[in-house]
């Protein structure tokens, strides 16, 4: 009886082995692009399908977490099968750029976006923008803070949430160190901690916690409002707010893409990048994700100010590739 079962499994093995060899060979076609995408399938695949419909180029997409995909690309090095890397945030792009794995981009493509939203090495370009905001409960917070320094005041004691392990928070702290110096950043973090700040794992948990009344205010990216509302399937009692002009709390991070040196089809890759930065597609992005277009001045999420009106500080996005100094600081303060 047991032996028969074993035989059946052996048969299954033989069959699936044959199948696996087929799959292994299938990805070696020349007319296709291999894309590593840190952006989710449901968001990006409609655009990619449209590109395929337009150009006939077959796109093979490996979806994953941006940071994990970056680590994978670093590990693959020159053996990478990937042509294009689309990332959720600038840090992962910076890491690939720093390792010298990205190819130089065409100036025309780079010029689609402002230079602060692209690589200083000209090898990756931002596609959409995401603003750091404070999410808050309009019901409970009447006096909005105009600087991150006010968050350490006693009125906000035990009422603020942050996600210190999240890379978007760490990017913000990196910018803070850059603008004020390490000692001042550490001082601010310590005061925040002393104000009994609540720690969360994810931005979405902070927004949900504000909605649930656990806290009143939290430091998040602007689009989590919509995501949480959509996930819960209802309106939530949370709003986005900006600090005073130039405050680091308003920094803009980007999601972007770069073409790898290993690309077998860099022309199609470039075509795809151009396509993603096209006006029409950018408009669609804003609708689908509530993120900011980096190309169009008039495409921005409903209810928020346009990108250029956000009083954001100037931040060198290439610094986000290495957050170890920031992590060390957060560890020292005891937040992670």
């Amino acid at each position: 009886m047991a032996l028969k079962r074993l035989r059946f499994i052996t048969l299954a093995l033989a069959l699936s082995l044959g199948a696996s060899l087929l799959t292994g060979c299938a990805s070696q076609k020349s007319e296709s692009l291999v894309i590593y995408s840190g952006r989710s399938e449901s968001f990006i695949s409609p655009f990619l399908n449209q590109f395929t419909a337009l150009t006939g180029a077959k796109l093979d997409v490996r979806y994953g977490d941006s940071a994990a995909l970056a680590a994978q690309l670093l590990e693959e090095g020159t053996n990478s099968p990937a042509d294009l890397f689309i990332s959720q945030d600038a840090g992962a792009l910076g890491a690939i750029s720093e390792a010298g794995l990205f190819a130089q981009l065409d100036q025309q493509v780079l010029d689609r976006v402002e230079d602060k939203y692209r690589s200083s090495r000209s090898d990756w370009v931002g596609i959409t923008g995401r603003a750091r905001v404070f999410a808050y409960s309009p019901e409970r917070v009447k006096n909005l803070p105009n600087s991150i320094d006010q968050l350490t005041l006693p009125i906000y004691r035990s009422k603020i949430g942050i996600a210190p392990t999240n890379s978007s928070f760490q990017a913000f702290i990196t910018a803070l160190i850059q603008s004020r110096g390490e000692a001042a950043a550490a001082n601010w973090l310590e005061k925040l901690k002393a104000n009994d700040v609540k720690l969360y794992e994810k931005n979405s948990q902070i927004v949900a916690a504000i909605d649930a009344g656990e806290i009143d205010l939290g430091l998040v990216n602007h689009y989590y409002l919509w995501e949480v509302s959509k996930a819960l399937g209802r309106e939530i009692a949370v709003a986005n707010g900006f600090f005073a002009p130039g405050d680091t709390g308003n920094m803009i991070n980007v999601a972007g893409a770069g073409i790898l040196k290993t690309a077998t089809n860099s022309q199609v890759s470039l075509d795809l990048l151009t396509y993603l930065l096209n006006d029409e597609v950018q408009r669609e992005f804003v609708k689908a994700t509530y993120e900011y277009s980096l190309v169009l001045t008039d495409a921005y999420p409903v209810g928020l100010p346009p990108l250029r009106e956000i009083p954001s500080p100037r931040v060198d996005l290439s610094l986000l590739a290495n957050l170890s100094k920031t992590q060390a600081l957060l560890i020292k303060v005891g937040l992670i």
Binding site: A67, A70, A71, L74, Q170, N322, Q327
Partner: peptide
């Protein structure tokens, strides 16, 4: 966290 934050594979 190290992979995520600093892409530092040796650490």
């Amino acid at each position: 966290n190290i992979y995520r934050g600093s892409f530092d594979r040796s650490s």
